[in-house]
Amino acid sequence: MRSKTFRESYREDIRIFKTIWVKFWLVLFAVALLSLPLWADPYIIYMVNISGIAIIAAIGLNILTGLTGQISLGHSAFVALGAYTSAILASKMDMPFWLTIPAGGVVAAFFGILLGFPCLRLKGLYLAMATMSFGVVVEYGITHWESLTMGVRGISVPAPTIFGYTLGDPSKLFYVTVFFVTFLTLAAKNLARTRIGRAFVAIRDRDVAAEVIGINLTKYKVMAFAISSFYGGVAGGLYSYSTTYLHPENFTLLLSIEYIAMIIVGGLGSILGSIFGAVFLTAMPDIIKGFADFMGRQFIFLHGRYDEEWNIAAFGLLIMIFLIVEPTGLNGIWSRVKTSFKNWPFTY
């Protein structure tokens, strides 16, 4: 049986992998994940890919909103900027994907900094609205700068290649996605425990106090915007390769709201929570649907009369119930379950 962890130093406390067991399970998970294209059908792989993209975007948003406390309703704009940057670079300049995806991140980060400065003075819902306006402006921009973005005609993205080897298939793109997800998750996990991450948390908890203890608010807030939008941009780059075709309609306010939902359902300020939330919200409609299909087969009289809106309603209801029952999100449930296992059979 595992005993309670006893830590002797601060270094030990902020270790990424707390115990050997964590490492063990992670390795197991990695093996299962990496072998996925060998045993799962392309449908599952595609779903994993879009979950992966959502994870990156959600982690990015969580750095800004969860860690630093700056509410953003404009995250879809950064995803759009990243997606369009990599699509344009790939289709018009034939750049390889390993350049275009980071380039998407960099362009998004640049705009993140641009947005970060004017937003320094805004707080709470006012900030949410300002970022939302930014999202609308970006959407207008990609709709109307037709010479560059092809506007409402949409832009096709060529399949990524590496050393003459095409990665267009979801099962191959899968490895690209997994690489970026792993890399960026580890980076975020690391970031959270450095000076920068602690500064972010300090700003979130009390900005005035943070400034008093010597944190440069301007610098760190803008930095949070930059990092968050970089993540959004990278997610966008992957998105463009995964859907192979971009259209301004894909990047509306609703997408931003979806990302917000992910980090709240997952757990604010927690990297693991972002992952939970992204996977949950991507997979949930399918799970509900699978359940509905199953029930439909059991009760034949429902056949043909079933309204798919029930699935969406169930989805909305689930989000509500989640937050009412568990406001700390999936991450909260996870850590509680973990603790109760750890402490079994003693409840405390």
């Binding site: 059908d41 392309p42 449908y43 595609y46 779903m47 995964s242 859907t243």
Partner: peptide, 16 residues
Amino acid sequence: FKTPLSISAFNKLIFR
């Protein structure tokens, strides 16, 4: 009316 969802629907219909 979302592109990612129609791609996943396509994959589901063909492979499942």
